[in-house]
Amino acid sequence: MKSTFIKAFKEVLREQILQKNKVEIDGFGTFEVVHRKQHQKTYENGRVVMVPPADVVEFKSKVRRSNEN
């Protein structure tokens, strides 16, 4: 496996994800940017925290471990 390929792979995926494109590699999974709304989190000790909005990468895959023990 060539390092130029790995580098290009990272770069292309990053560019595409940044452009909010969904990258689907069959047999592997999909990369997608998901927006998380701002929300409040309440702790049991009464602390309430406002969590800011965020864009996060989400990877979904149907691949499952085959030799599950």
Partner: peptide, 16 residues
């Protein structure tokens, strides 16, 4: 990926 919201951090609205 999160560049739009860079620097935003959680804000405590109510102390424990």
């Amino acid at each position: 990926i999160n560049f739009k919201y860079a620097g935003m951090e959680p804000v405590e609205l109510k102390p424990p």
